[in-house]
Amino acid sequence: MLRYETFADVRLGGGGFNCGSVASTRDHAPPKVFLDEPYPDNIIKVASCAACNESASLDEQYVACLIEATLRGSTDPDDLQRSKIARTLRRDPALRSKLARAKFDVDGYIAFQPESDRVSRVLTKMARGLWYFEHAEAPTDMETICRWWTAPLSPAAEAEFFRTSSLQGWPEIGSRAFVRACRGLVDSTHSSGWLELQEGRFSYSTDDGRVRMILSDYLYVDALMDA
């Protein structure tokens, strides 16, 4: 993933990306549980208060394990592809049992009933962190309206997911999103709006007043940042 430095006014950032409180630590966006080792050299970190940083770790672990179990149709660590998730379920039998109880069969297709509130909290926090990183603007006064779908998307749904309005405004001057937009005017390699942090694991876009994310080529997320 290409990395752009920010030249935005530092006063825009202020405190932690999620709540605006004094930032005493740095949070990963996305959390490392959604990425494989070795991690990307340009892994994203954003300013955060300790409470926001620490409060979501169990939910993040749950969502990452849910995605992998769904993709493999199993909670057995030996059936999983991601070694990190397999290790987690081996050392946390309670989480493994929780996921196993959520498993059901639909015409021979294995699926899992998600705890939607936990999924929403994780995806919303992730979207807000990426917005802060790309736009140099803490979204503390923004409502984040988050929707998600699972692969495969229908052709119409996929087209809608990737569609970007031609009427979108310019990002904050000096922000990473602004620098990317400027370079896109003269170089088509910078103009897609999508950034791949780790192949097959995580990509995102923060154009058009939205944060869109794709996790493990399976979970498609569209978060509207509503000022």
Rank of each mutant, 00 (worst) to 15 (best):
Y109K: 15
Y218P: 00
R180P: 06
V119S: 07
A64S: 14
N42C: 02
Q81A: 14
P139N: 08
S74F: 09
D107V: 03
A156L: 04
S116G: 01
W149T: 09
K45G: 02
G200C: 07
A181K: 06
E199I: 09
L99Y: 02
S21F: 12
L35E: 05
S175V: 02
S165D: 15
P31V: 00
T75Y: 03
W149K: 15
S166P: 03
S57L: 07
P152K: 14
V221W: 10
R26C: 08
L197M: 10
L153E: 13
C146R: 01
G20W: 09
P139R: 08
K32S: 12
A47N: 15
E37P: 03
P171L: 04
A56E: 13
L35G: 10
G209S: 14
T206I: 06
L95S: 08
L99W: 01
C49Y: 08
C52P: 13
R201Y: 07
L185W: 03
M126Y: 02
L123N: 05
R147V: 08
T124A: 07
A223C: 15
D36I: 02
S74V: 13
A157W: 02
A102F: 01
F162N: 09
A8L: 01
Q81M: 09
D117P: 08
F178S: 12
Y39P: 12
E5M: 03
R183C: 14
T164I: 15
R3P: 00
Q81H: 14
V46Q: 11
A111F: 01
W148M: 08
E134D: 14
T6W: 00
R82N: 10
G73E: 00
R26A: 11
F133W: 14
R180H: 00
M142R: 13
L89T: 08
D9P: 04
T88E: 02
A138F: 01
D79T: 11
V186I: 15
E54T: 13
P152W: 09
S48H: 11
T189N: 07
L185H: 05
G129W: 05
G200I: 05
V33K: 11
A136H: 07
Y62R: 15
M225K: 10
Y204D: 06
E60W: 09
H28M: 03
F17D: 12
R183T: 11
E134S: 13
D79W: 05
S97E: 15
T140Q: 06
R201E: 03
Y218G: 11
G108K: 11
A223S: 12
L95C: 05
E199W: 01
M126F: 02
V122R: 06
R3D: 09
D226L: 11
A138P: 09
L66M: 12
A56C: 04
A156T: 10
G73Y: 04
L215M: 07
F178T: 00
